[in-house]
Design a protein around this nucleic acid. Structure first.
Lengths: 232, 232
DNA sequence: GATTCATTGTATCGCTATGAAACAATAGTA
DNA sequence: TACTATTGTTTCATAGCGATACAATGAATC
């Protein structure tokens, strides 16, 4: 494979995206694996020379998940020298025929970190040209990632946790209709702690952001919960 | 003046710093003025090719204020296409003999925003090579700035306000010893609103972060306030 | 030295928010 | 019909916070 149009992208600039998904119980993120090396990495990409930064991240996400207009938030830009490890990139690119040691991909990069919140069930992730597989991994059981990607995930989680109340982002992690228990589980998965059921319900309802719909009869031998949706 | 070693810096990458200072009453920021154009801009700079991002900003700040180890926080990276206005940069550089239209300075840039909190009295700002003067301007009476710099300031202020309680940054805006009233004025200037004196004192003291020292006899005909410092 | 004044330190009152627990309702099962 | 698991709501005690009042105190004034 020849060089992928090197001068179509801004040199030295990359983004890494931490894609959070919720599986009903656990909070997970998308990771790509390079089989030849056994290495894991965050899905990332580059910024077109005439493309806005936000747009580049949206595009990369659309290509990998098929999802459009997902909730995206920039949280930090990583620019230390420790993250410059050309041998790692060279090892990854080796099977794809990148031999030149001075290739633009092996230069130093700043990386802008974004995170996304998406509905686990609506997504069929697809590996990109360089990675051999892509999949969901629980945030508290992540494998070792290349470069500073473990650190990036931690920073994303931190940002998400400290801004959770302000944004009520959970919108994107759940289907259109959900129960109060579903919503509480999202909060618990993100915050990493258990919440009191009664107080959670009181708090959320007092915010006046939910619409209550018909009940959900699950077949279980107990009171049926209401279904909710977010007000628009 | 010839090109300032173009390849010593990462292309397409800049930083802009919002330097907050407190004058005893008002919150101010540092602005640079290009006399030939009458334009104002945030002090910014570029990242050395072998230099960490944080280091580049520290360096720029040291060169302009003489201060070292100030509180610095990264708050956002600006990457829209609207901020790409080569004619503005060309106009600024014109008096310094940059004629080539394809010069690296006139390309598109991403800019990483940082803010700093410094003690107004310990600083003697100095203009850099390109700007003709540098000075303090009240945040609520800023002139029009080039590009998206007014927006950058707003975003910095927002970040500072929403994280003020977590960080207790005020440490850097005040001298070693200060009164409770001094501290309250810093908070009021940053938040842009008046605070209740009694409640502010109760809240701050309950945080257990201050050390109380001897009283300050100012000569005024009233009860003398205690002096405080931040615990270390 | 008593009086006055401006400012500071602290206490009080009422309301709201919140954590913990109890109580009530209900869909299915035995 | 009784029982069970889960959900919706209420209650109670406490913490936090805004608003206000009160007490203490340097210095100036008479």
């Amino acid at each position: 494979m020849p060089n992928p149009e090197p001068f179509d992208f801004l040199p030295h600039i990359a983004y890494d995206s931490v894609v959070f998904g919720f599986s009903g119980e656990k909070l997970k993120i998308l990771l790509m694996e390079y089989h030849k090396t056994g290495w894991f990495a965050l899905p990332g990409g580059f910024v077109g020379i005439n493309e806005s930064l936000d747009n580049a991240v949206q595009r990369g996400l659309r290509e990998r998940t098929g999802l459009d207009e997902v909730y995206l938030e920039q949280f930090y830009t990583f620019g230390s020298m420790e993250r410059f490890k050309p041998e790692v990139m060279m090892k990854i690119m080796e099977p794809h025929g990148f031999e030149q040691k001075d290739h633009w991909l092996f230069k130093r990069f700043l990386s802008i970190g974004y995170y996304a919140l998406i509905n686990y069930e609506e997504v069929e992730p697809k590996p990109d040209k360089l990675s051999d597989s892509i999949g969901w991994y629980e945030v508290d059981k992540l494998p070792e990632l290349i470069l500073d990607h473990n650190f990036i995930v931690q920073k994303a989680l931190n940002h998400l946790r400290t801004h959770l109340d302000q944004k009520l982002l959970s919108v994107n992690l759940l289907p259109e209709l959900f129960t109060m228990k579903d919503l509480q589980q999202v909060y618990e998965a993100i915050l990493g702690e258990e919440l009191n059921r009664a107080n959670f319900q009181r708090k959320i309802l007092s915010l006046d952001i939910l619409e209550r719909h018909e009940k959900l009869f699950s077949g279980g031998s107990h009171k049926a919960p209401y279904l909710y949706s977010f007000k628009k």
